[in-house]
């Protein structure tokens, strides 16, 4: 009697059997077929041997300084108060830049506000309809943020939910 070819379902069941993931009924089915079908036995053998070949991959090890470097970064993350849970490490070592950026941004906004209040009397050079100011308003408003970030891609990433959203979909 011709043996039926090995289907995807057969292979799935066989691999689950080899991995010890079959229930009792499936185990019996696979064992019965392995006893009677030399092609399935050869397939099982080839699958096992291919799997064992992965043992030849080198096991990479981290640099000996890995723990130290990680804990150094952790030191920057450790909260001042227990409630502070999110601190971006990339920002922490740029504190002087952050302050400089905030100061620059504040000055720019102040300059802009003075222009608004005085209607241009305090400075003949500031005009609310100045096309340069209008064009760069968003840039001026977000100057501190741009200074603190590594790149514009990083800022875009902040808006990506899968990167900075719920971090622990698991347990």
């Amino acid at each position: 009697m011709p043996k039926r070819p090995i289907s995807d379902d057969d292979r799935e069941e066989l691999i689950a059997y080899l991995d010890g993931e079959s229930d009792r009924a499936a185990r019996k089915r696979v064992e019965a077929r392995l006893n009677s079908d030399p092609r399935l036995r050869a397939e099982a053998d080839a699958l096992k041997k291919a799997w064992e070949l992965l043992d030849h991959l080198p096991r990479p090890e981290p640099n000996p300084t890995f723990t130290t470097k990680t804990l150094d970064k952790l030191a920057a993350l450790r909260p001042v108060s227990p409630s502070a849970t999110i601190v971006l490490p990339q920002v922490s070592h740029r504190v002087p830049w952050v302050w400089a950026a905030i100061t620059a941004g504040g000055l720019a906004l102040g300059w802009f506000a003075v222009g608004l209040l005085t209607g241009g009397r305090s400075s003949a050079n500031v005009r609310l309809d100045d096309p340069v100011l209008v064009r760069d308003l968003r840039l001026i408003e977000n100057l501190p943020l741009f200074h603190a970030a590594e790149s514009i891609e990083f800022l875009h990433a902040l808006d990506t939910p899968d990167r900075f959203g719920a971090d622990s979909p698991g347990p």
């Binding site: 070819p5 995807d8 691999i15 689950a16 080839a46 291919a50 799997w51």
Partner: peptide, 29 residues
Amino acid sequence: LSRARARLREVLQDYIYMNSGPVPTVPDP
């Protein structure tokens, strides 16, 4: 995992029996 292991078996076919004796004979369908 089933699809992955079938693919690995296919790609590594030439290396599977390199150091481990004869290839098992599979009856011709």
